[in-house]
Design a protein around this nucleic acid. Sequence first.
RNA 1: GGCGGCGUCGCCAAGUGGUAAGGCAGAAGUCUGCAAAACUUCCAUCACCGGUUCGACUCCGGUCGCCGCCUCCA
Length: 484
Amino acid sequence: MGIQVYNTITRTKEPFEPLEAGKVRMYACGVTTYDVCHIGHGMQALIYDVIRQYLTFRGYDVTYVRNYTDVDDKIIARANGLGIPALEHASNMIASSERDLAALGVQPATIQPKVSDNIPEIIELIQSLITRDYAYEINGDVYFRVRAFQDYGRLSNRNVDDLRSGARIEVSEHKQDALDFALWKRAKEGEISWNSPWGPGRPGWHIECSALAMKYLGASFDIHGGGKDLIFPHHENEIAQSLCGTNGAFSRYWVHNGLVTVDGRKMSKSLDNFLTIDDAVNRYYPESIRYAILRNHYAANIDFSEQAFYDAYSRLIYFYSTLAKLDEIRATHAEAPAGVPEGMNPPDLKTEFINAMDDDFNTACALREIGTAFKWINDVMGAKKPKLKQKAWVLLKVGDEIRRCAAVLRLLTEEPAQALADIRDYLVRQRDIDVNAVASQIEERDRARADKDWQRADQIRNELADMGILIMDTPNGTVWQVQP
RNA sequence: GGCGGCGUCGCCAAGUGGUAAGGCAGAAGUCUGCAAAACUUCCAUCACCGGUUCGACUCCGGUCGCCGCCUCCA
């Protein structure tokens, strides 16, 4: 059936067909770089990274642009507070954001342009809007004439008269109409500014995304994404500016991700209920955060709780433990036999994965299919029927398929033994567990077991269990994991 | 007030006009010295009330509750 995408502008799921065969051009709104990123930003970045990655997996040549809005009121205010230039502060925050996303395991976009590097393009677009009479200048400010654009409100399903009745529209004596929004803001005392045909100033919000998207992707492109909270006014305004300022169609598909909530409320700086990415990756194994995000559909809000991360740990331990067993098999059964032994029915993971992801990037269903494949491996691995020698090759093949699919989701990319050790370290730190004490307990238990002193051995195991330590006796000795 | 969305098993979470994926937790079993891990089995009728339909959790109307946007926001 091909890829289906839910398009906000039509409020339906549509077949995805890029403008240019084999190529996808996509844009996602990045962050305004005035402060460190919280996991809501991390979730947004991960979602579009995964969408990009999936489209690549499906054979498209993807160009993915994610901007940095590094010129903005809040940046200026914050920088003034710190006593440093606005762009310097923005640059610090960009660096911080890139460190955060790297730590989270999110890959950078193809192009990550900054507003401050693209002022001429912005001015040019504003100029074009003025020429076409969609914008006007007053005292060094330039505003977009909202009522001049017939289709205004189409994305967010609003009509201008409803907006007018809204109580909280900013009043400005300069605007011709309360709905009009700023394209260019005249510089105030001591503010960072650029020269323009309307005097020194800086871009308003919204215009940068239009200019950057069209500069790097063309006046018409395929996908535009962002958080649900940007639908209005940000994306609505982007559409207005872009369509009115050029002859292009701007974005064809509008994708909006859900938000991270805390106790049901949106995570945001203003509510002061945010968890920064930096804190999050220190507290939780980063992949567990990615898992916790991707087990939901991207458009759903996610309410993070400790439980969400424990669930993620359980699954990751299961996944990596299985992969670790496969690694052992690989080490001892390298050769590939002729084919699949009689009676074995390995899952066609790739097909199931594509079916799941084609349906509006349903990562929740994709993870179910990955889980099913793992279960199959464990089932076959534990079975006596085909000898390991015969089935090893098939097991490894399915394992490789799992890793290829999971990699699209930015999951299971680590070396299994290392991942298991790292997960344990995270849990050890979080629970404040004394690793040396655990080790000596286990040694003592091993001695008791060697003496067949089962009572003592079980007593120690129970003590460890009370601390949340799970003991596993394997042919290669006793290993332990922290109960998530 | 306007616009949009949500309410599915104890918890998390998919989904569909034809009698509800998956995960966590729980129960039983296989395995094990005993466990753990792994595997097997069991575990919901989809907020409420109407309507359309042969048939709705899925469509329509209403009620209740929650959330987002309309101001900066991923």
